[in-house]
Design a protein around this nucleic acid. Sequence first.
RNA 1: GGUCCCUUAGUUCAAUGGAUAGAACAGGGCUCUCCUAAAGCUCAGAUUUGGGUUCGAUUCCCAAAGGGACUACCA
Length: 602
Amino acid sequence: MNLEQILTEQALAAVKALYDLDATAQQVQLQKTRPEFEGDITLVVFPFVKAARKAPAQVATEIGEWLTANGEGLVNGYNAVQGFLNLKISQSFYIDQLQAIAADEQYGQQPDNGKLMMVEYSSPNTNKPLHLGHVRNNLLGYSIAKIQEANGWKVVKTNIVNDRGIHICKSMLAWLKFGNGETPETSGKKGDHLIGDYYVRFDKEYRKQVAELVAGGMDEETAKKEAPLIKEAQAMLLKWEQGDKEVRELWARMNAWVYAGFDETYKRMGVSFDKIYYESNTYLEGKSEVEKGLASGQFYRREDGSVWANLEKDGLDEKLLLRSDGTSVYMTQDIGTAKLRYQDYPIDKMVYVVGNEQEYHFKVLSILLDRLGFPFGKELVHFSYGMVELPNGKMKSREGTVVDADDLMDKMVEDAREISKDKVNTLQGITPEEAQEIARKVGLGALKYFILKVDPRKNMLFNPEESIDFNGNTGPFIQYTYARIQSVLRKAENELRVESGELREVGKLKVESLDPKELALIQRLMEYPATVRQAGADFSPAVLCNYAYALACDFNSFYHDCSILNEPDEKKRALRLLLSQTVARTIKNAMGLLGIEVPDRM
RNA sequence: GGUCCCUUAGUUCAAUGGAUAGAACAGGGCUCUCCUAAAGCUCAGAUUUGGGUUCGAUUCCCAAAGGGACUACCA
């Protein structure tokens, strides 16, 4: 049982004994005591004031008195400030806690809940390279999966690749017309970047055609539909769906280039998938589901042959499911994908990590799946995150105002290496390879933390003109704290011959008194499991970022005030080493749930 | 027009309905003969507006203002 649970029980017993009040655990509000007051943990007594029919300060005093007398030594002091009862907890309790935490290798890991969660994230189109928006998606998706695993779920990470559709046809068409057989090998470009370039090229030529038609007197709306290039692309999509051999071969070849590029980027980013679905394999399933819905009267066909769902009774509008030429749309594909997934896995919870611009889509998808008789439809979770904005607005692939994922990672690692050059003291005696590896971890750590520390629901701003910080509330700050501890532990082993295993053997450390900084650190460590649970319940890596930062701050402050290796009292030294080791492990775990690696030195 | 989201220091971000709204960066001042100064200490600086609920509101409710997303036979 943790401190909150014990205190909650004691507080309930106290109000029962004092005021004959049957309070609920929810009414027992415990919070950390503010630093300006004396005490460790504070009970808010306002909820009991009415039943007690006494002034808040008096109620606080009475409860404080009761807890001190009947709390089995846990509470050994209190003070009441209005309705706030500040409790002092005995130091031996904290030392016991530290011992228990240090001994628990799985500290923070929640027990297996026996259920399976599928997390879909990334889900790129195959017509352009990944950009900063995808980076946020990937980092969030990966971290959410890790966090839910820590909360006891079995998690299957999945990716649905949108490998078919008009977008890839545009790239294919532009490549055929203007590519002169260019390949990743001949051009030296990564496959995804090469394809992306042709997507941009298509748009450029298309707009030229539209402009010409408009100049010839056509209105813009019509011109956009009548431009020869777009008609060709549509014809190509139709051929693709009909299985035209040439189109399919070209498609397979160009997609393979893109996948090779994506794989490189994913690997670098440190994200992975357990199962990848391709839209080209799922859209037919979707079509057949739509046909079924049509037969059962859930959907209807218009005169032009297109198929629609009427969602007006759910407060929404009508939604297209199949185009008049019979080709499928995004929604069709998602229905098919859902069906396949539930055939493949016994999914208890399905989570889609997709931007908030698609909230409407998932609202509709949920209703459609439900209507088609899928039991999971109603339960699906759209983990909707905010956009990454640039100073002048949203990123637009076609307008070239995107921050490319590969470029960004390069830049971060480069910056990290540049900064580390000034740190010759700490990087002495390491190979260039090791230095590069440190720069990689630190650069990516800075990027990942920068993105994950923001509440996922909110839009966030990225200014490419200003480089991401390596000081202050950043990934490298936390990594630095870890590296610092590793350095101390190395010295402890080499110079004092303290084996890390020995520390845990040091029975109950009979330390006279805990330094306030030591106490603060232990308290922070005690918060970790609740933080993991909250991050899971809220789907929020940001919660863990805040925790890791606070833990690192606490440690740096402790490190500044308390000497570890030079502490003459052996028991104190052992306690500090154990504390440092446990902090390091917790930092590593928390950062691991964020997908951020920690270097042993930096 | 309709639906949804957002608004906190100069800037980027925090704060289960709780005490004097926290950090970081940028700015001013300190601290390396001392376990890694990517650090520590310190000064200055903010809840868009108006109502309401509450012992107590950044948080909940209702308006208004400002910003964004969606409302595609794109994905």
